[in-house]
Simulated assay, not measured.
Amino acid sequence: MAKKPSNLVTVGRISTVFGVKGWVKVHSETEPRENIFKYSPWWLKTKHGVKTYEVEDYRPHGNGLIAHLKGIDERDQAEALGRVEIAIDRSQLVDLAEGDYYWSQLIGLRVVSEFGEQPQDIGVVSNMMETGANDVLVVVGDDLSIDRNQRLVPYVPEQFVLSVELEQGIIRVDWDPEF
Score class of each variant (00 low, 15 high):
residue 170 I to G: 02
residue 168 Q to P: 08
residue 19 G to Y: 03
residue 110 R to P: 10
residue 64 G to F: 00
residue 60 P to H: 04
residue 73 D to T: 08
residue 65 L to G: 01
residue 149 N to I: 04
residue 24 V to W: 02
residue 66 I to S: 03
residue 160 F to C: 03
residue 124 V to N: 11
residue 43 W to Q: 05
residue 176 D to F: 08
residue 102 Y to M: 03
residue 39 Y to I: 08
residue 5 P to H: 03
residue 157 P to D: 09
residue 174 D to H: 13
residue 155 Y to Q: 07
residue 49 G to N: 12
residue 94 V to G: 00
residue 176 D to M: 05
residue 103 W to T: 09
residue 148 R to D: 14
residue 141 G to V: 08
residue 10 T to K: 13
residue 87 A to L: 02
residue 54 E to C: 04
residue 174 D to Y: 12
residue 72 I to T: 04
residue 21 K to A: 12
residue 78 A to P: 01
residue 78 A to F: 01
residue 150 Q to E: 15
residue 12 G to C: 00
residue 18 F to S: 09
residue 5 P to S: 07
residue 91 S to Q: 13
residue 41 P to M: 03
residue 22 G to F: 00
residue 55 V to G: 00
residue 83 R to S: 09
residue 49 G to D: 07
residue 92 Q to D: 07
residue 110 R to Q: 13
residue 25 K to L: 01
residue 24 V to M: 08
residue 151 R to M: 06
residue 39 Y to W: 06
residue 102 Y to C: 02
residue 171 I to K: 07
residue 53 Y to E: 00
residue 97 A to K: 11
residue 152 L to T: 12
residue 66 I to D: 01
residue 87 A to I: 01
residue 60 P to G: 09
residue 150 Q to C: 05
residue 7 N to C: 06
residue 144 L to W: 11
residue 67 A to I: 02
residue 16 T to F: 13
residue 40 S to T: 15
residue 34 E to P: 00
residue 91 S to K: 15
residue 37 F to N: 00
residue 45 K to L: 11
residue 144 L to A: 12
residue 75 R to K: 14
residue 31 E to W: 00
residue 140 V to G: 04
residue 52 T to N: 14
residue 103 W to P: 14
residue 41 P to Y: 02
residue 76 D to T: 11
residue 115 F to R: 07
residue 46 T to G: 01
residue 11 V to T: 04
residue 91 S to N: 14
residue 33 R to V: 03
residue 175 W to V: 09
residue 15 S to T: 15
residue 20 V to S: 06
residue 10 T to N: 04
residue 129 M to E: 15
residue 74 E to C: 04
residue 87 A to T: 13
residue 165 E to S: 07
residue 3 K to N: 13
residue 106 L to N: 04
residue 42 W to C: 12
residue 173 V to H: 06
residue 93 L to W: 01
residue 56 E to T: 02
residue 27 H to Y: 07
residue 123 G to M: 09
residue 133 A to T: 15
residue 176 D to R: 02
residue 163 S to M: 06
residue 166 L to A: 09
residue 27 H to N: 11
residue 137 L to R: 10
residue 137 L to Q: 10
residue 25 K to Q: 05
residue 54 E to R: 08
residue 125 V to I: 15
residue 100 D to W: 12
residue 31 E to P: 00
residue 176 D to Q: 04
residue 39 Y to T: 10
residue 116 G to D: 03
residue 130 E to H: 09
residue 116 G to R: 07
residue 156 V to K: 14
residue 3 K to H: 14
residue 134 N to S: 14
residue 53 Y to F: 14
residue 169 G to S: 03
residue 109 L to Y: 08
residue 2 A to K: 13
residue 67 A to L: 01
residue 171 I to F: 06
residue 88 I to A: 06
residue 3 K to I: 15
residue 117 E to M: 05
residue 126 S to G: 14
residue 146 I to V: 14
residue 19 G to P: 10
residue 134 N to K: 10
residue 120 Q to W: 05
residue 29 E to Q: 11
